[in-house]
Amino acid sequence: MKTEKIVQELGLDVKCGGDYLDKKVTGGYTGDLLSDVMGNSKEGYIWITRQVHQNIVAVASLKELAGIILINSSEPTRETLEKAEAEGIPIMVSNLPAFEISGKIYNLLMSEI
């Protein structure tokens, strides 16, 4: 499943990186601690978090994640958006809390196999 499909199914608000939604999503990881995500996410994962600081972009880029979903309608900072656009990392916003959005994405990904 591509990031694009998740955006459509869950009505996510794409804040930047709209040209990079065709990456295959291989899984997901939910967390707000950067070292936790650094250690436990894998290439192609979608990352669900409440962190909005620009440091999330380096993590996503170094780990080659498919994109970042911000929860609870969190607003990314301007620096975050600029960096993410430059690195080709989609940042999407959901109005749902982490538990709900994670569950929905889990179901979507599982429905595919």
């Binding site: 601690l33 950067l34 070292s35 650094m38 250690g39 600081h53 440091n55």
Partner: peptide
């Protein structure tokens, strides 16, 4: 911590990877 650091996992990640 507000930026998402401070889990105490960085050095462990270095060792593991």
């Amino acid at each position: 911590r507000e930026m998402g650091f401070g889990a105490g996992m960085g050095l462990s990640n270095i060792k593991n990877y």
